Measured scan of single mutants.
Amino acid sequence: MIVFVRFNSSHGFPVEVDSDTSIFQLKEVVAKRQGVPADQLRVIFAGKELRNDWTVQNCDLDQQSIVHIVQRPWRKGQEMNATGGDDPRNAAGGCEREPQSLTRVDLSSSVLPGDSVGLAVILHTDSRKDSPPAGSPAGRSIYNSFYVYCKGPCQRVQPGKLRVQCSTCRQATLTLTQGPSCWDDVLIPNRMSGECQSPHCPGTSAEFFFKCGAHPTSDKETSVALHLIATNSRNITCITCTDVRSPVLVFQCNSRHVICLDCFHLYCVTRLNDRQFVHDPQLGYSLPCVAGCPNSLIKELHHFRILGEEQYNRYQQYGAEECVLQMGGVLCPRPGCGAGLLPEPDQRKVTCEGGNGLGCGFAFCRECKEAYHEGECSAVFEASGTTTQAYRVDERAAEQARWEAASKETIKKTTKPCPRCHVPVEKNGGCMHMKCPQPQCRLEWCWNCGCEWNRVCMGDHWFDV
């Protein structure tokens, strides 16, 4: 396979590697080409510095992935760790964990309700045991953590790749202090920090972006993250068709209702045909949960890209028209025109101005929308079919299609509260000796007794199943 190397943020060049090629071997190839010592090179990928003893497969490097290699003399205490030698983080029983690669970060837990604080980093599902597709590297999971809308060759929703760059020099040479644990960490600028490894760059702020994971991409090709779309790892039924499908869209209502993408497309087109989208002054033209839940309008309007190009163009047109109407304007009634106009409040005669090729020149009556006339309008008909009709959803289907309910059931079956801080902690095999993952707590306690870890627990039921 081919990976592209950008040395000291210059133009990239291809390097041929195998899945079992080590990072140090990659350094040696680059060092020979650039005429520099291999031990002064640092390989940066997806916000993480890659260790010498890791392989291309370990690092989730795919065909035509772009890695950054910078030349920086080692500072005291760094060289041993980078070589894969006596790194205290690798000691058996050590409590410190390697910062998780962005290629394996899962933010789907952050669609849980606000009262489930902490689960994004504490609760991990076991539903990723799908067998890898044919042709994928051994052991590589097909679980997708992110979804994007690819405006490039795909023109559809695709699995996405999370990447990070330095907000100062805009190069992907920043190593994160810690990985993101929720969508806010990724979507809110300057929320996460790190250290830029580019020479002479003092940058410390992280800037995240997404790429389409279905095809090789260049540095400049980015895609918009659709953070309401998630892999259906909890096997929730769709609120409309009641099938279990994946991926799904999880509405931001209190129940976190789930809808499959085909039904979401149908829901949007139906509402669009009836012009029953909601115009929100802050958000724009949007839709609420299909069950009509309060405070559930979709905030990231790129989710409506699921409509496809033709329907999305209609959505944008109707949204612009609705904006004009909300501002007190009118639409030209001549067939084939429909231009938005903003006449004076007491102006009865409205002319669709033909300047700049935008208007048709038609003069019409503001009251009856017919060709302009003197005197009273002959008839004014009330528009028919403008009443909002509820999208029919079966109550039982709505009850079963809740992301929140599956989460709470998982928590109930696989977790116990920490005796000190009461945060839910998952036990997935292993011994009875637990350690609270909350940095402010870190209590060592017994899963069996529910009390602080002691010699009695150690001698009596340390390794009970």
Score class of each variant (00 low, 15 high):
D185P: 01
R442A: 15
T410M: 11
V186I: 14
P424E: 09
C182W: 02
R275F: 02
I142F: 14
H68N: 08
D130A: 13
V350I: 14
R33F: 04
R271M: 14
H461C: 00
E395V: 09
Q165L: 08
F304K: 00
W445R: 01
R234F: 05
A406G: 10
F264D: 01
Q347I: 09
G12E: 08
N52Y: 01
F7L: 03
R396W: 08
R97Y: 11
E79N: 10
V43E: 01
V164D: 03
T415R: 10
E409C: 09
F381V: 07
V15L: 10
Q311H: 05
G319C: 06
G308H: 05
Y312K: 01
T217H: 11
C337F: 02
F7S: 02
L301G: 07
C431S: 14
P216F: 08
G85D: 14
A225P: 15
S181R: 12
A91P: 13
R305H: 08
C337K: 03
S65P: 10
W445F: 15
D130L: 10
P180L: 02
M80N: 11
T240D: 04
D130T: 11
K161E: 14
G336H: 08
A397K: 07
L107V: 12
G94C: 12
N81F: 15
D274A: 04
P417Q: 11
V456H: 15
P73N: 09
W453M: 15
G77S: 12
A38Q: 05
P216W: 06
Q440E: 14
V5H: 03
A92F: 12
G355Y: 09
L41A: 00
G338S: 13
P88D: 13
Y143W: 08
A406Y: 13
F364E: 03
Y312M: 05
A138R: 12
G355D: 14
Q317S: 15
P14E: 03
G329L: 03
L443V: 05
L26V: 04
P216N: 12
G355E: 14
P424V: 06
D115R: 07
R275L: 02
G94W: 11
G385R: 08
Q311M: 05
G459Y: 15
P137K: 12
C457L: 01
Q171H: 07
T270L: 05
C441I: 00
R89G: 14
V111I: 12
A379N: 12
S181T: 12
C332I: 02
D394W: 04
F264G: 00
K48W: 00
N235G: 14
H422Q: 07
N8A: 02
M192N: 03
D18M: 10
Q389W: 08
G375C: 04
A397L: 10
S378C: 13
E322R: 04
C260Y: 01
T173I: 05
D262H: 04
A371N: 10
P199H: 07
C377S: 02
E322F: 03
D346A: 12
V15K: 00
P424L: 09
S136H: 12
T410F: 08
N313V: 08
S378M: 10
N144C: 05
G355I: 11
V258S: 05
M192A: 05
S205C: 08
L162T: 01
Q326P: 03
A397F: 10
A82F: 11
